[in-house]
Write a protein that binds this DNA or RNA. Structure first.
Lengths: 342, 342
DNA sequence: CTGTTAGCGCTTTCAT
DNA sequence: ATGAAAGCGCTAACAG
């Protein structure tokens, strides 16, 4: 039940607490010798700095808040790795929060982060997030924030994104080039820009290759595995045989793969599947799976870098800067094998 | 750049800041009417409570620190879900930290949590953790902590664990009962008790069924997928044909499955595999995979419950309490199908 | 029910 | 190089 403060150290050493404070924070204006006495005594008594007091006084926490829909999604946990690595290098630590895809929790979290005076925020918005009052409240209080991956309709943010339109286009084009003519799209919540844009990319590729777009080929999902399973089930019900699927998210792709496996449907022999995902997770699902690779790590560290420059710019006005990263299509099977199908 | 404090509110309303404080923290000893005026003014000016000041004063944060090796491991992210749910219900929030399997980072994290005066800590130790000075420092400062899943050799902790010995025994027995005679064990770092105990369970089951234990059938791993792949490769090199594998961790099982798939080795027809894992992740790897199920969610919420009771007991001495949860064997294929092999 | 007062533990001028 | 003093924003006795 050790509650040693700098005053205790000061008293023991017959000096003032301000000197102790200076010594412990590495000020140069303390005699080397006193410094040593102080650190020795601190260790002896098991002194433990109180960051609450320190941060309160300094009005700076060196903490950045990270809010993601759920950490169990591979994309987000790898993004967090990128964030932490970058942040720690600059002496910042990170607090991780999950919105669990609800706006309510997301708002609560922002309130908490605000109350705890974090120096900045990185956020990937929830499925439900359609109003941005909580982001505005960050702005109002001069807390810089960067939206990564899942961004908002409004423009007045700093963003770090993947080029989802291109990702959707490339995925669809890949399927077409490998002989698919009847390509279904597993979409995502349409209030999230990323899913909107992937859908647009899908449409654009179809148009480019003169394949008529069919509304009924777009199957929604609320980012649950069961949606992927349901979607996969629906494929058999179409008049024409579906030969390709472009999934806008890994979760739906996982669900679909489970269903395919159970039914003995082979990928990509019976049906070609390209999913937005991550190289490593898609390899787990099926080594044969083609992927539009999203490097969570890269997007995380890029977003952190951008945030840190904003934090360092200080109280001056925050500029809105958007960085768009290129998606990378990873085609697992040789197109030889696939093109036999056409 | 809003820096409204309770004093600002008080001044505006011509009352004292202590009344504002009471009103805002829901004290009953404030007139309903003033309460309303205060909350109205707070909203009007965009007042945002400063938890640093509040927590400093109260010497209580209502925060519990969670430290895990890595959040990307499915077990840990689901444990965190259980922790958060339980903690939020009691008005606690949670800060999540990753040791990335190093003792150094783990120690730093504990230091940080201490400096930030968390009310308690939940920890699953890193692969490297063999000395427990950092846990002792929690004890010294009267911060209750509960070790979950990955526990330590020392006894003087509160733990929430899975019965790993039984898990190892059941997994191995399952393989034996289904006709396997040459069972390899993918082990884990032996300074972690959980892997030691799973190995012991494996040995005990062999002995029970009079199958000789062979040292060379125990293949280590450092919890990387590549270890699983390497281990799977080694199976062909044994004199006798390996017909069963008990993997002590999901990561190695995933690696092995990848290798098996690539080589066209079927599970469980060609080789039976039981892995310590989680129902949902193993279903992704292969719906046919048998699993010793570890419910991260359950272990997380149980650990949180235990921690919260300790926190509430206050400054009195901390009792060492250990809760052991039962593992659950989930056999995916009917044993019919498997037993044909014997 | 409300005001007064005194800190929580630290940092930071300003002196010396 | 060190000390004195003030205060970050809040809460919690204690009065009244």
């Amino acid at each position: 039940m050790n509650k040693i403060t700098i005053h205790d150290l000061a008293r023991e050493l017959g000096i003032d607490s301000s000197t102790v404070s200076r010594a412990l924070s590495g000020s140069s204006r303390v005699a080397q010798k006193t410094k040593e006495r102080i650190t020795a005594k601190a260790k002896e008594l098991g002194y433990q700095k109180n960051d609450l007091a320190s941060n309160l006084r300094k009005n700076k926490t060196n903490v950045i808040g990270v809010v993601v829909p759920r950490i169990s999604r591979h994309f987000f946990s790898s993004a967090i790795s990128g964030i932490e690595e970058r942040a720690y290098k600059e002496g910042y630590s990170v607090v991780i929060c999950q919105s669990l895809e609800t706006l309510e929790k997301e708002e609560k979290i922002i309130g908490n982060l605000l109350a705890n005076r974090v120096d900045g925020v990185l956020i990937s918005v929830s499925m439900e997030t359609e109003n941005y009052a909580h982001l505005q409240s960050l702005k109002d209080r001069g807390i810089p924030y960067v939206v990564f991956d899942r961004h908002c309709e409004i423009e007045e943010n700093s963003n770090v994104l993947i080029d989802d339109f291109k990702g959707g286009f490339d995925a669809t084009e890949h399927l077409i080039k490998n002989g698919c003519q009847n390509i279904v799209h597993f979409s995502g919540p349409q209030n999230l820009m990323i899913y909107k844009n992937r859908l647009l990319g899908y449409k654009a590729a179809l148009q480019e290759y003169k394949i008529p777009f069919k509304e009924e080929y777009v199957l929604g999902s609320s980012l649950m595995e069961k949606d992927g399973i349901e979607n996969a089930k629906k494929l058999a019900a179409f008049d024409t045989t579906i030969d390709g699927v472009f999934s806008s998210n890994d979760v739906a792709a996982i669900g679909a793969m489970k269903y395919f496996k159970k039914k003995g449907i082979r990928v990509p022999e019976d049906i070609a599947l390209v999913g937005f995902s991550n190289e490593s997770i898609s390899a787990v699902i099926d080594p044969a799976l083609s992927t539009v690779n999203q490097s969570g790590f890269e997007i995380g560290s890029t977003a952190t870098e951008l945030l840190l420059t904003q934090i360092k710019r200080g109280e001056v006005l925050i500029q809105h800067e958007t960085i768009v990263l290129a998606p990378e299509l990873i085609a697992r099977k040789s197109s030889d094998r696939l093109s036999k199908r056409s």
